[in-house]
Design a protein around this nucleic acid. Structure first.
Length: 449
RNA sequence: GCCGCCAUCGUCUAGGGGACUAGGACGCUGCCCUCUCACGGCGGAAACCGGGGUUCGAAUCCCCGUGGCGGUACCA
């Protein structure tokens, strides 16, 4: 099996593109596991000279690497094959299968007004202008692994332009030729290409080649059911990375977005995905990209990481060091990298100052009295260990004849400046005796209302 | 307009004529755990787009309708 991912470098790697890449990759690696020699080819579809830039290519390669989607061949620039494409075009011209015409899009429209909207444009050779392929009579059948056969009546198809007036090849010609030359066996790509496929079939048949197997993946939509785009938040792989997601979670989520097998497992390793994935079982309908489930999945993967591993990644993501202690006691409370700092930043930046409500509620007169008692009890501890802190604070409610919460929350607000934090004993132990006492003193000195 | 694809809980899906009182997951929700928030555990509500067929029997097959989406470039 030989598959390819062929993005056009017109921007960042879109999530839909990443999913297409993943499905190709899983298909190839899965087949390889079953003993079938398989390759995943990366080709850059850069024949659109206006929009294709080296920066965009770089972005796409970065994103694929981040996701762990490695390729066996490439990246191959489609433009680098231009000579070959021109040669094919010449050949088709010589054999009378293609012709030159100066007809423009407007002319095509005019032709249809005259011949009926359901009659495709048919031109004649004018010796100059763009190069179009003659569409024969009959019908073309796309054999699709996901949706079965789709039949297109040739009369509806305009003679497709395969090269510009200057001879530069266009997408439908270049794709087919490159897939033939690269001996691609399975073309797995977006459903937006479904209506292009008959045109490519024409090229295959003009060249006397057997077409590959096709699989047209349904498109991805945003939460509102509209085509996924920037305004839905994260729409590209780099945005997901920046938002603090783990690549392994993104892979798992994407794999299950539009595909599922009879097994009800949700958490699937790369290996399991490769073993189980079957492109024929991809759903036929579009799927909505919903970040909620990705968040949950990401939390699962995050918690499965060792403290060292998570610390390492978090330090890379935040550019800070010395996070291990805070990471250890925050791990079960965060779902993405981005959740970390809002939760644990107070260890490093001091208590939060933007939660007046918490101060008002817990640092009132009663609260500060409790804090004073806590300060006295903690002040004599030596060593200031987690066990000692916990034992000391746990004894306080009974001594003061108040509810546990009335001790723990004021302490929490004193240390963190807010009512949400990692465990209070762990937090105090991590801050250490001096800092803990300093923060409690500060809270007693500057009360709420 | 024309061509084409699609349609199961709010979301992602399982289902390929009887095993369906339609299963799982996220989310929502009740309880438990509990120093906050989470995590975790145990429950709950929640769907076959509509109408015709075919059949002893349809979520599953066919037709029509409706709705969504894609294409309709000398873009990819």
């Amino acid at each position: 099996m030989r598959v390819r991912f062929a993005p056009s470098p017109t921007g960042a790697l879109h999530i839909g593109g990443a999913r297409a890449a993943l499905y190709n990759h899983l298909a190839a690696r899965g087949a390889a596991r079953r003993g079938e020699p398989s390759q995943f080819v990366l080709r850059i579809e850069d024949t659109d000279r206006e929009r294709s830039t080296p920066e965009n290519v770089e972005q796409i390669l970065d994103a694929l690497q981040w996701l762990g989607l490695d390729w066996d061949e490439g990246p191959i620039s489609q433009v680098s094959h231009e000579a070959r494409h021109r040669e094919v075009v010449e050949d088709l011209l010589t054999r009378g299968l293609a012709y030159r015409t100066t007809a423009t899009a407007d002319d095509v429209r005019a032709y249809k007004d005259e011949h009926g909207a359901d009659k495709g444009f048919r031109g004649t050779d004018q010796g100059e202008g763009a190069i179009r392929l003659h569409v024969p009579e009959g019908e073309l059948v796309v054999h699709d692994l996901i949706r079965g056969d789709t039949t297109f009546q040739n009369v509806h198809m305009d003679d497709p332009v395969i090269a510009r007036a200057d001879g530069s090849p266009l997408y439908n010609l270049a794709v087919a030729v490159d897939d033939i030359d690269a001996e691609i066996t399975h073309v797995i790509h977006g459903e937006d290409h479904l209506s292009n496929t008959p045109k490519q079939l024409l090229v295959y048949s003009a060249l006397g080649k057997e077409p590959p197997l096709f699989a047209h993946l349904p498109l991805l939509h945003g939460p509102d059911g509209k085509k996924l785009s920037k305004r839905h938040g994260a729409a590209s792989v780099q945005e997901l990375r920046d938002a603090g997601y783990l690549p392994e979670a993104v892979i798992n989520y994407l794999a299950l977005l539009g595909w599922g097998d009879s097994d009800d497992e949700t958490i699937l390793s790369r290996e399991e995905l490769e073993e189980r994935f079957d492109v024929g079982k991809v759903t036929k309908h579009p799927a909505r990209f919903d970040e909620t489930k990705l968040r949950w999945l990401n939390g699962k993967y995050l918690r499965a990481l060792s403290v060292d591993e998570l610390t390492d990644r978090l330090e890379q993501h935040t550019g800070r060091t010395g996070l291990r202690g805070a990471v250890e006691i925050s791990q079960e409370k965060i779902s993405t990298f981005h959740d970390f700092w809002p939760l644990a930043g107070f260890f490093f930046d001091g208590p939060k100052t933007d939660d007046q409500k918490a101060r008002d509620q817990w640092l009132d007169d009663d609260g500060r009295k409790t804090l004073a008692a806590a300060r006295d009890a903690l002040g004599v501890l030596d060593p200031f260990s987690l066990e000692a802190v916990e034992q000391t604070l746990r004894e306080l409610p009974a001594t003061l004849e108040v509810k546990p919460k009335q001790v723990f929350q004021p302490v929490r607000v004193a240390l963190a400046g807010t009512t949400v934090s990692p465990g209070i004993f762990e937090s105090a132990a991590l801050l250490g005796k001096d800092e803990t006492l300093r923060r409690i003193d500060a809270a007693i000195a500057s009360p709420g209302t």
